[in-house]
Each structure stands twice: as C-alpha cells, then as structure tokens.
C-alpha cells in the first residue's frame, strides 16, 4: 500500500505541458481506434508507433514500461492463453495443436491476440496519460470548461482519502496480527477477522464526514458565484488543433465500422 495515490511523475517534458483535455481526447482516440478501427494489426501499431514513442517524448518511458508490465502482462497473458485454448471451435479452422480435449486453432490464436492487444492499448494509453498529468491539473481544466466544482472536489478528495485509509488499515491489520490474527487461518477465522479489521476504519471515517462538510461549507463550497482556479493551465492553438485531429480519428474509426465492406 503506497502513501501516494497517483501515477503522476513530476518532470519537464513537452507531453507534460500538453493540455490535459487534449491528452484525454488522445487516449480515447487510441482506445476507439483499437476497438473499432480497421485491420488486425492496428492495435499493435498504435502501441509501437503511438504510445511507446509518446512515453519517450514524455520522458516517462521507464515508468511506463514498469507500470504496463506490472499491470498488464499478467492480465493480457492470461487472456491470451485462455482465449487461444477456449475459443469456440467453428469447425473449419486449422488446428495448431491439441491440449487434452481442447483444440488450439489459428482462428482462436488470432482472436486471442486481437483481444489482448486491444486491452493493452486501452490500459497503457491511460497509464501514459496518468504518468504525465497531475489530477489537480486535469480537474482544474475540466472545471474551467464547465465541469461542476463539487464533482472535481469528489475526485481529488478521494485520491487523498484512500491512502489515508490504507495507512490506517495497515496499522489496524498490524495491531490485530500482533494479537494473533492469522490471515492464513481457517475460513471461519478469516471471516471472523473481517469485522474487527474493517469496523473501526469504516465508522471512524464516517464520523469525520459531518465536520468536514461544515468545514468546506464555511469556505463557501456551495457558493453560487462562478468559481475561479488557482492553477493556470496552458491551452494553445496547437492543443485545439490536436483535439480536432483526434476527434476526426474517432469519427473515422466509427465510420470504418459502419462502412459496408
């Protein structure tokens, strides 16, 4: 359990300086292209020619590979194996090898590879985005564009509260372990351990809600005046142009799906 709940790496790079919304639109363009765009190799090309070079541009390539490896390889590997083996046998496809009663077909492997590469694009595009965008910056930018301030409050407050509660949870778990809690014990014992571990945590954090509500009301949280933002977020002409470009890609991706082939 880590003390900081963001992937963000503070660094000087041209990708860091790109407007958060532009990056977000780019992420969605990648995902939609991967799932709806034409061609078997498109998702793989997006990773090799798009996301990976961008991670170098953002000077976060090492963090990118490490995070993607940690979060994605197990999932994608599992998906690939399971789907190669369990893809429904249509009958006329070529059998590559036989495992027990299961046929691994060319069809199955192709399907598995496509699914796995799409998931890879989806998750790793977000990883790249999160590594180069501070959550406060994203929220300030979206608030300026009309997202409600209360909504932005919820996101950033959650990012702060989770590590707090995780820290408290660790303390409680350690305390209970020293009193003989065994997380490897019998099923009944582990079920019995759930309440003493979570009870104090849950009630403690719920009681704070009332005072915090008073505290933020005292600082005009519900003011009807138009809000301003402390952070100044760059939004250049290039950003705007890039957003239109990515939107166009999204439209083309959907279009390719609808086009009668």
């Amino acid at each position: 359990m880590k003390d900081k709940l963001t992937f963000y790496i503070e660094r000087e790079s041209s990708l860091h300086r790109v407007n958060p919304l532009t990056k977000l639109v780019m992420v969605f363009a990648f995902i939609i292209l991967a799932f709806f765009g034409p061609g078997f190799w498109l998702p793989s090309l997006l990773v090799v020619l798009g996301i990976i070079p961008l991670s170098f541009l953002g000077r976060v390539q090492r963090e990118y590979f490490r995070t993607a490896g940690r979060l994605l390889l197990p999932v994608v590997g599992f998906l690939f194996l399971m789907q190669s083996v369990f893809h429904p046998d249509v009958g006329d496809s070529r059998v590559l090898l036989q495992v027990w009663v299961l046929n691994v077909t060319v069809e199955g492997v192709r399907f598995a590879y496509l699914t796995a590469s799409r998931i890879f694009v989806m998750v790793s595009a977000f990883i790249l985005f999160l590594l180069t965008t501070h959550p406060s910056e994203l929220m300030s930018d979206l608030t300026r564009r009309g997202l409600s301030g209360t909504f932005a409050y919820v996101i950033t407050a959650t990012l702060q509260i989770i590590p707090q509660m995780q820290a408290k949870a660790s303390t409680i778990i350690d305390a209970q372990r020293s009193r003989g809690l065994d997380t490897d014990g019998s099923f009944r014992k582990r079920v019995g351990a759930l309440l003493p571990l979570t009870g104090p945590l849950v009630f403690g954090s719920l009681v704070e809600v009332e005072e915090r509500a008073i505290a933020i009301e005292a600082r005009a949280f519900t003011s009807k005046l138009e809000k301003t933002s402390l952070r100044e977020i760059p939004d250049t002409k290039l950003d705007k142009a890039a957003r239109w470009f990515f939107l166009l890609l999204i439209v083309l991706a959907f279009g390719s799906k609808l086009w009668p082939s």
């Binding site: 301030g149 509260i161 005046l225």
Partner: peptide, 22 residues
C-alpha cells in the same frame, strides 16, 4: 477534519475558499 481534503499543497488548500467565491 477542517482540511478540505481535495488539495495537494497548503498553498492550494488556502486558495480553496477563494476559488469557490470566484
């Protein structure tokens, strides 16, 4: 409990109320 909980630095925390009133 008086910390807004939504800000990452003291500077931002103090600005919270002023942001709210524009």
């Amino acid at each position: 409990n008086q910390i807004s909980g939504s800000k990452f630095t003291v500077y931002e925390e103090i600005a919270f109320g002023l942001e709210n009133i524009g």
